[in-house]
Simulated assay, not measured.
Amino acid sequence: MSPRLVDDIATALAEHGLIPRGGFAFGDGDAAPAGPAGRPARSALLVGQAGAAPWPHYRNWLERQPKDLENPLDSWSRETIGKVARAFGAHAVSPSDKPYLPFQQWAMRAEGLKPSPLGILMHPEYGLWHAYRGALLFDAEIDKQESLKQIHLCDLCDGKPCLKSCPVDAYSETGFAHRGCLAHVRGPTGVPCRTGGCLDRNACPQGLAFRYPRQVQAFHMRSFGGF
Rank of each mutant, 00 (worst) to 15 (best):
K144P: 02
A170E: 13
D8L: 08
D30G: 09
A31Q: 12
E111K: 05
W106T: 05
E63P: 01
G35W: 01
V6C: 00
D30Q: 09
M1H: 10
L18F: 08
H57D: 12
N202R: 13
A170H: 09
Y126T: 12
T195R: 01
D97T: 00
R4D: 13
D68F: 00
S165G: 00
P192L: 04
N71L: 02
P117W: 11
Q145P: 00
P95T: 04
P117A: 04
F176S: 07
K160S: 04
V185M: 03
A218G: 03
V185L: 07
Y132F: 15
A44S: 14
K144A: 14
K144W: 12
L148A: 15
L13G: 07
G17M: 11
L73I: 08
C157E: 13
P66A: 08
D28I: 00
G29H: 10
G225W: 03
G225F: 05
G226I: 01
G119E: 08
A50P: 01
M108K: 14
P95N: 04
C154P: 05
C181M: 03
N71D: 08
F138M: 09
L69N: 05
L13N: 11
D169W: 13
A87S: 15
D74P: 02
F26V: 07
W106M: 07
Y171W: 15
V216H: 08
Q217V: 01
G226E: 03
P20R: 10
Q105R: 14
Y132G: 02
L156K: 14
S96F: 03
G89M: 05
P205Y: 01
P54S: 09
A32M: 09
P33F: 00
K83G: 12
R21E: 15
L128T: 14
G127M: 15
T174I: 05
T80F: 09
E141R: 08
L136V: 07
N71G: 06
M108S: 06
G23R: 13
G180T: 07
S147G: 00
H16E: 13
Q104P: 02
N60F: 03
E146R: 12
R179W: 07
R86N: 13
H152S: 11
N60K: 13
D74R: 01
A87C: 06
G207W: 10
C162P: 01
R179L: 10
P99K: 07
S77Y: 00
C162E: 10
P95Y: 02
Y171R: 11
R194H: 09
H57N: 09
Y212C: 06
L46V: 12
F176E: 09
H184L: 11
W106Q: 09
R133F: 05
P161E: 08
F26I: 07
G197W: 02
S172W: 04
H123G: 15
D158W: 12
A203K: 03
F88R: 02
W129L: 13
R222E: 12
Q150I: 03
M221D: 01
S43P: 04
A90I: 05
L153S: 10
G27D: 08
Q105A: 15
D158F: 10
A14Y: 08
R86E: 15
R214V: 06
P66M: 03
H57P: 02
S77D: 11
L153F: 09
G159N: 08
P161R: 07
P3L: 06
G48W: 11
D74C: 02
L137F: 04
